[in-house]
């Protein structure tokens, strides 16, 4: 059914810490590994060892350079997968009912046996969370590792999404964001977690934690203020050369 549930019992999702993510792409690899070997059509690659490799991924890590008005630029690694939105536009556009949002935990899933590969759900998603698999011809997306989190054949510590389990820097957290007392909800409240593209009105369940402000290194060298690093009023030949070159057409002033 492509009608969204009015509310879900739980809101399972991820909290991604942009402060601690080191951009190692381990979550990308573990996601691809688990979701190729387990539920649904494998995540295929095309021309994997050729000149123009391409493949299906449910989780991708972007890197952004952010330049503040003063100070040096910051590099921020930015993992992005399905945000399991409360108002998921990908679900309502589906013509076949293959896309649905679960009432019990809010996970957005695709029933691959019903998917006709029309791509409209991927068009409706502002986050690029859905990818049409070129081999299987059906839409693939993050399942929040629904075949791990309830899997009693796995040790308890493994009953989290593969990306969360593998993250070496502890930048990914999994839990019920509908429960204000859960660890993830408290983390979001403490760190000022935010939504991606809130103006799109999708009400994403996944939250992102902003990078912490950079601290400023205090000056510890007592002599440093007395050492002028660059002479601004040169003398002699160098001064004459500087002025002569500056006077030439197109010369630096």
């Amino acid at each position: 059914m492509t009608q969204l549930p009015a509310s879900t019992a739980k809101k399972l999702g991820l909290v991604i810490d942009l402060d601690t993510c080191v951009g190692c792409h381990a979550c990308v690899i573990s996601c691809k590994g688990w979701n190729t070997e387990n539920y649904g059509a494998p995540l295929s690659d095309q021309n994997a060892y050729g000149a123009d490799p391409s493949g299906t991924f449910l989780n991708r890590v972007h890197s952004y350079e952010v330049q503040p008005e003063v100070g040096t630029a910051q590099l921020i690694h930015f993992p992005k997968s399905c945000l399991h939105c409360e108002d998921a536009p990908c679900v309502t556009v589906c013509p076949t009912g293959a896309s649905y949002k679960r009432v019990e935990d809010g996970i957005v899933l695709v029933n691959e046996a019903d998917c006709i590969g029309c791509s409209l759900c991927a068009w409706a998603c502002p986050y690029g969370a859905r990818e049409l698999d070129a081999k299987a011809g059906v839409m693939k997306k993050c399942t929040l590792c629904v075949d791990r989190i309830y899997n009693e054949n796995l040790p308890e510590e493994d009953r989290v999404p593969a990306c969360v389990r593998t993250c070496p820097s502890g930048a990914r957290h999994f839990g019920d964001l509908g429960d204000v007392d859960s660890d993830v909800s408290q983390l979001v409240a403490a760190r000022g977690g935010f939504d991606l593209m809130p103006e799109q009105g999708t009400k994403p369940v996944n939250k992102y934690l902003p990078p912490r402000p950079k601290d400023v290194m205090p000056e510890y060298d007592v002599l440093a203020p007395f050492l002028e690093p660059v002479a601004t009023d040169g003398k002699g030949f160098a001064h004459w050369l500087d002025k002569a070159l500056s006077a030439l057409p197109g010369g630096a002033k």
């Binding site: 991708r60 972007h62 890197s63 952004y64 350079e65 952010v66 068009w123 939504d195 992102y208 990078p211």
Partner: peptide, 28 residues
């Protein structure tokens, strides 16, 4: 608004997720 990083400064795409292209880039 896409990255939520605008409060820090000007956001520039530094590195894409993969060196190659993908479905999203071909389609959109």
């Amino acid at each position: 608004s896409a990255t939520g990083l605008g409060h820090i400064g000007t956001v520039r795409a530094f590195e894409p997720p993969h060196t190659g292209t993908n479905y999203l880039m071909r389609e959109f």
